[in-house]
Structure formats: C-alpha cells, structure tokens
Amino acid sequence: MQPVLKVRNLKTQFFTYSGVVQAVRGIDFDVYPAEAVGIVGESGCGKSVTGLSIMRLITYPPGKIVQGEINLDGIDILNTPEKEMQKIRGGKISMIFQDPMTSLNPALTIGYQMSEMLRLHTNLKNNEIKERVIELLNLVRIKSPEEVYKQYPHQLSGGMRQRVMIAMAISCEPKIIIADEPTTSVDVTIQAQILYLLHDLKERVNSSIILITHNLAVVAGLCSRILVMYAGLVIEEGSDFQIFENPKHPYTWGLLKSVPRIDQEEKEKLSTIAGLPPDLISPPKGCPFSLRCDYAMRICFEQLPPYFEPEKGHRVICWLLDKRAPAATRSKK
C-alpha cells in the first residue's frame, strides 16, 4: 500500500531575537490510508510545529521550513504555490485545533461558516449545501442540527464547538485530518465523547488521522501507530503495542511511568525524569536526552545515535540498541 503522506527530513526553524530555534530537526514518517497516527511529546518537542509544517501554516517571520520534503497524495507540498495550497487545505487535508473558539468566526453562524467551506471546496449547489451541512452535523452526533445551523459559536458549549470543528474538518472528505490537542481544553467526559467520535469517524469517512497530544493515554485507544517526539526529533516510532508494551527508548520508559494509571492497584511512587529538555537554540551534539538519561554512556554525549530497528516498524534513536552497548532493561513496571 502506498502512503498517503510522506514526510522526509523535515526541518523547521524559528528566527528569534535570542537565536535560531531548531524546533523540528529532521524527521521522517509515513501515514497510510485510513490509519490513525499519534504524535506524542511534551511542550516544545516540536509536535505542533510538525502539524503546522504539513499544513504549510508556518508564517515567516519568524518561522520557516528550511529543509525537507512533504508529499501528500502525490502533491509536493513545499513547492506548491500559496493559491493552490488554499485549495488543498480544507480539501485534501484539514486541521482541528485545541481551542475551537479561536478557530471559528464569532460573528458568523455555524451554518454560514460550514456552507462557506463547502462552497469553496466542492461543486455542490446551494440547496444541496444546506442538506450536506445538516448531514455532517448529524455525523458528529449533534442532536439538533437544524438549530445549531442557525446558532453562533458563543451559544455552543466547548464540546459542541469542537464537534462543529470536526464536522468542518471532515466536510470535504480529506485524505488526512490533523488534530492538534483536540481534547486538551475540554473536560474528561467530553474528551471521552470526542475520542469516541474520532474513532467512529475514522472507520466511516476513510480519512487518516494524525493525533497530536501530550497525553500518552489518549493515543492508546485511538492510534495504531505512535511517534514519540523529543527536542525536535522522533526518538521512537512503533505500533501501539510496541510503544506501550515493549518500548525501547529510556525517554518513553520515563514518560510511561511518570503518569499515574487509574487502574493501578497499589500505591507507589511515580518515577520522574530529572531535569529539563534541552534548549533548542543550541541543542547538544549527542543524544538530546543524554543529560536526563539514567543509562547514558560516553558515546551518548558525543554522537547523535542513528535509527535502530529492533523489530519491523519499530524505530528508535538510542545507543543502547547498539551491539556494543551493555544490556539495559526497563526497570519493573
């Protein structure tokens, strides 16, 4: 099967007063049709910048994609004129943001905004457009779509607005939906509704989803493949099973053990990752995690490790996987 999105050696930088921030430092990944991929990492790891780079929504100044290749369904995204890009955004690829309030226009009704989107990207006639909007609102399980059609964004709750955003994102049956922290600003019971909805839609509309989040638990139920990002790099990539049951990178180990699990039987201390992520204006020449790593070796400070592939589809940047390294195993769960 051909991937629908190919990202190769993507580098995005921000030119700020204090220096050049290397937000994304050369990442590669593929997304296959109808697949859900999770990008997980802490703030400043470059996960959101990756999403915006794929949409080509990085504004210069200060941000710039300095190198790389992004291929969406045969289209070379980085060399497409802005006019063309406007048709691609919302058409072939769409995005859901963390705060739906700022991405909806407060002065226009939901119906108007959704119709506008369809008018721009499809050839539907006026009377068909309204029908389609109602159908979409039904699809995202909004109970009274006719009523919501006439309402303004501020009249809806946070969860409802996020549903409207999702309805807009799927309206043109895009190849890929990028969801950037879609549940971070809503309550847990609403988060459960939205995740369930995304799961359900993935099967029905046949789009691929890239879910960007800081919450590892959120991707566990939805994504079949997961990328763990740290300091602008994908430090580990694998299937959900590989990442959660058999992770290889000490950072992934730490991340998994530092959050309490609600189903945990006995109470035990959380394990912590000491220190802070490196400054991306002058990232360390070796492994960016070396300073915080309990297993660090001399080489980790000298050289950035290459990708090791312990299993098919499982890629890890870590010297521990080198044959010459001492055996290191994750301390018990």
């Binding site: 019971t189 988060q191 959900d240 959660f244 699990r261």
Partner: peptide, 16 residues
C-alpha cells in the same frame, strides 16, 4: 462510574 470510564489508560490492550 462515567468519570472513571472517561479517563484513558496508557495501555492499548486494556483500552481496547
């Protein structure tokens, strides 16, 4: 009960 169920668990096997 609903609140408990809404909290995701970082384990795909359990989660499914």
């Amino acid at each position: 009960q609903a609140l408990n169920s809404a909290v995701p668990i970082p384990d795909p096997v359990v989660e499914k």
